Amino acid sequence: MNLFIGLLNLAIDEYNDRASYLAQKAEVIAEIELFYLLPFQRRWRTWFLEVIFYRADVKEARKYIKEAIKNGEWKKDDWPEMKNKILKLLSIEDAIKD
């Protein structure tokens, strides 16, 4: 496992890209959860939380959401209550056109 982590760090240094680092980290964590944990360990709520909070900069979130709306990637039918709350919190006046 230490060798794999070392190789992962070398790859991160080589590419120096935060997004690829996070994607690789997610793959490693998923592999550990699937192959190295016993079934009863995977059900422990103290290890695997039901809700994960994510902190984002408001300006960057507005920029990202407006770009997603513009490109048609912000689908109104996916999680409509949550998306309406996000639009209201970020004071985004642009309504999604039906």
Rank of each mutant, 00 (worst) to 15 (best):
E14Y: 09
Y15I: 02
Y64C: 05
A19C: 01
I69T: 07
R42E: 05
R43H: 09
R43W: 03
L87N: 08
M1P: 03
L3V: 12
L49G: 01
F48Q: 05
R18C: 00
Y64L: 12
N16M: 08
Y54F: 07
N71L: 15
K70A: 14
T46C: 03
I52D: 05
K75I: 10
R18W: 00
I86L: 15
L49N: 06
V28I: 11
K66C: 13
P80I: 07
F48P: 00
D57R: 09
S91T: 14
A23G: 09
D98H: 14
K70S: 08
E81S: 12
S91L: 13
N2Y: 05
L8S: 01
R43K: 14
F48I: 06
M82L: 15
Q24Y: 05
E93P: 01
G6V: 00
K83T: 06
R42F: 01
A61S: 15
R43T: 06
E31G: 06
K83Q: 14
E27Q: 10
I86S: 09
Y21V: 00
S20W: 01
R55M: 10
V51R: 12
A26S: 08
D94F: 13
Q24G: 05
W44I: 13
N84P: 03
N84R: 13
E31M: 11
A11D: 04
D57Q: 12
L87C: 09
K83D: 05
D57C: 06
L22C: 03
W47V: 14
Y36N: 05
K63Q: 10
Q41V: 03
A11L: 08
L34T: 05
N9F: 01
K59Q: 15
W74K: 06
L34D: 09
A68Y: 04
Q24C: 04
T46P: 00
T46Y: 07
E14L: 15
E33N: 06
Y15C: 06
S91I: 13
L3D: 15
F40V: 14
F40H: 14
N16I: 01
K63C: 06
L37H: 01
V28N: 01
K75C: 11
L10C: 05
T46L: 13
D57Y: 09
L37G: 02
D78N: 09
L7P: 00
K88G: 11
A11M: 07
I92M: 08
L90S: 04
Q24W: 01
I65M: 10
E31S: 14
A68H: 10
V51M: 02
V58T: 10
A95F: 03
A61G: 03
D98G: 12
K83H: 14
D17P: 00
D13N: 12
A11V: 10
L10E: 06
D13V: 05
L34H: 08
L90P: 02
D98Y: 11
A95H: 12
L22M: 14
I96M: 07
T46I: 04
D57P: 01
K25H: 01
I32N: 04
L87S: 08
